[in-house]
Design a protein around this nucleic acid. Structure first.
Lengths: 219, 219
DNA sequence: CGCCGTTTTGAGCCTAGTCAATGTACGTGG
DNA sequence: CCACGTACATTGACTAGGCTCAAAACGGCG
């Protein structure tokens, strides 16, 4: 496997999580590359990430892909105004999520003030991230894009530690930042040569050596 | 005047609009270039556009600008999870908006199901537009960007008529699409020469002559 | 060991950006 | 009424950042 050929997640495990008085969710495990839903699918559920990373993306007719966000632990995504999902979502690595029935959304919102607030806040945070990301996509250089991305991942993956593991591969990073994998790779080696970061000979881990320099690139 | 030197809107006219049982808004008039709020300002109000167009944008330290959205009649924007606005907002031309007190937001949401739904739907639509726009910014060519933009504006400004007036100038379009004004101008003349659109010798109006061709560029 | 998926590196090209000049509309004041 | 100034848009010549195409290196795993 591993071929990134998105296989659809079909079965829900029996585990049921109770997250709030009214909001009951279904716990799901996805393995690397599994598809949670596709653009155009009926939006039967929305989701919260428990562990791992989900990539949500859109495709152009010729296959060009834009990953609009990586969703990590605690993030809520897939809430829709209409009846269809407007983007696709796949597991980056092995992922645990909780699925909430969309049909219960209005009931939840009506009855449960705490959960309502969480959904509203999560949606607003997604919007905020989208706005930041549009600035990156439209106006930053390749170096600035990577600097921003690495600093953001440090915060979100490891609570701002020096060293952490990137869950996604180069092509995911490229499709998130509006670059090619070659440019991502070249820019990272350039950062390494300048002493900004350290890449291990293998694997996906990364160390930020010179945060100051990265932050100044972040613009 | 017209110097795009954002002057701050300071005074609220006395007119008060009653839009729903619990949600009372203050009607405001802004003239071309006036600033509604800036990134970092306390988010005292959120807004609904009555007429005209608002541009919301972010700046990099060196002045590069990304306009993440143009808000037109009926659009709601400026709702924030935190206490500060995360982007700036200015009037593109003369604009009429209704301002709602943010402090009343939670009360409104609690009491008024209709208004709550409108805010949630508006926020989700803003997110949806942001996702579409990230695809455009990250993965579309200059031609595709302009084709998408023109088709979208036709729908939103004129309910999909052949002929309409663009409220914004070239530099706004460029900063929205992640291009320079030169590229916007060149691409539009290229479209004109190919018979896709017609530009008047002067002014901001535009006619779409070959929707099919534009749609195929839209990818 | 050898295959496959992934990443890195290299060489050349192209799209969009930069810099600069010209053109056009419009408002102001002589 | 016209000359001038300003804001905005168009066009041209040249440049460069990032893309394409291609090949090699690397690691994991059967």
């Amino acid at each position: 496997m591993q071929g990134q050929t998105a296989t659809r997640a079909t079965k829900f495990p029996a585990t049921v999580a109770l997250r709030s008085p009214t909001a009951t969710g279904i716990q799901m495990m996805l393995s690397k590359g599994e598809e949670l839903f596709a653009e155009g699918d009926e939006a039967e559920y929305f989701y919260e990430v428990v562990s791992g990373a989900i990539r949500s993306y859109k495709l152009l007719s010729d296959g060009r892909r834009q990953i609009d966000a990586f969703h990590l632990r605690g993030d809520i995504f897939g809430v829709e105004a209409g009846r269809e999902h407007r983007f696709s979502a796949e597991a980056v690595g092995d992922v645990q999520v909780i699925a909430f029935r969309r049909s219960r959304l209005s009931a939840i919102i009506e009855e449960d003030a705490v959960f309502r607030d969480r959904i509203m806040t999560a949606t607003l945070r997604n919007l905020q991230r989208a706005q930041d990301h549009m600035l990156l996509l439209g106006r930053k250089t390749a170096q600035e894009k990577l600097a921003t991305f690495l600093l953001d991942m440090a915060v979100r993956l490891s609570d701002d530690a020096e060293h952490f593991d990137l869950p996604m591969q180069r092509s995911d990073i490229a499709d998130h930042l509006g670059l090619t994998i070659e440019t991502v790779s070249r820019t990272l080696t350039q950062f390494t040569r300048s002493g900004l970061i350290q890449l291990p000979p293998a694997g996906r881990s990364i160390s930020l050596c010179n945060r100051m320099a990265l932050k100044s690139l972040d613009a």
